[in-house]
Design a protein around this nucleic acid. Structure first.
Lengths: 190, 190
DNA sequence: GTTGTTGGCCAACGCTTGTTGACTTCACCG
DNA sequence: CGGTGAAGTCAACAAGCGTTGGCCAACAAC
């Protein structure tokens, strides 16, 4: 029943502004330090509006941290290229959407966010890996990829370890690519 | 001048009890959710005592998160064994001292803790790597090792991703060992 | 022109937090 | 015995939090 109009009402625009401010704050401060009052101030709006639109803080976070990895099809690539390709895609997703940073920062202290993170890798990365390797090992491989991808993002975007933050895109792919390839397609015996 | 007596006064014992409770709380809840009141309750003392002994929350955390990686000498090992050895040592340190978990959880939302984390890898891991590879590349290698080590710890001990938490010590070393070896001694061209 | 409805603001609530200062207890030393 | 100082208790503070309910202004419908 909703029209196909670009901006139906003022309410939808406000909702969007709140969501954008929330993503920014959650990404920068984590779950507990990102206060509804601060988010409302960023959106130039009253804190009560945030409650009206999203019910409570937990639901606001759930809406702000909705995320799709948009994983590409890797099954047609040569074996040695899947790691670099996936690494490149991860860096893309990480840099053009703050939701992932918000999710990572929050998931360390918030159980609901941690759940979201677990589902992200189980439901989105797992199936893709099943097209590349023995499906029985897909869960483990997804976990290993997660450990390197999240660890790199943690060091580069959250902790800002100088040597990791200084790596160029090409260097990052050259170092991480082979690691990811091995986790995706290698065997325990190396 | 301090006597060699096992327990000089009640003060030292209390200080220790507070520190132990603080480490536990910071490790389980992160910096902001670990309240002084909760720590004091765990230590079965008054919150005011925490302030008396440590000044404020920040200083309490600084005292609770003091940490030494106790890295072994890796320079006498064959190249292909340095990764597995270092991985094994990391798992040891992670599992018998809660300080690292406290530091990781806090460093995601607390700048002082993040600083501590950066120093940990720069000052303790960097020098060890200089004995293994071109010193000019030691910083980068330390960062890469940090990305995999912290990422694995994040997934296993903090997020508890099921496939990562389920890995045995041997499996973990078999998967991570070669990765760490390459970061420590490999070249960009693989 | 009245009447709803919708988007927004304001003031306040109950609660928790870090932190403070004054008070008590108590062991030890002269 | 008295007193001195450390160890511990208690009650309270100011500030900040998530959250609530009532009020206002605009605007479309009848």
């Amino acid at each position: 029943m909703s029209q196909a109009a670009p901006e139906k009402r003022s309410a939808d625009r406000t909702r969007g502004v709140i969501l954008a401010a929330a993503r920014e704050r959650f990404a920068a401060d984590g779950y507990e330090r990102a206060t509804i009052r601060a988010i409302a101030a960023d959106a130039a709006i009253d804190p009560a509006m945030v409650m009206r639109y999203f019910g409570n803080k937990e639901k606001l976070f759930a809406a702000a941290a909705e995320f799709d990895l948009r994983l590409p099809d890797l099954s047609r690539l040569p074996r040695e290229e899947v790691g670099p390709a996936l690494t490149n895609h991860f860096l893309d997703r990480w840099e053009d959407d703050e939701s992932l940073k918000a999710l990572l920062r929050a998931s360390v202290t918030n159980e609901a966010a941690a759940d979201r993170m677990r589902q992200l890798f189980a439901d989105q990365l797992g199936p893709v890996i099943m097209t590349l390797a023995d499906p029985a090992t897909a869960g483990t491989r997804a976990g290993l990829v997660a450990s390197q991808a999240l660890g790199f993002a943690l060091c580069r975007y959250v902790l800002a370890l100088p040597p990791v933050a200084a790596l160029s895109r090409e260097e990052a792919i050259a170092w991480l690519g082979p690691t990811i390839t091995r986790y995706l397609t290698g065997s325990l015996a190396d």
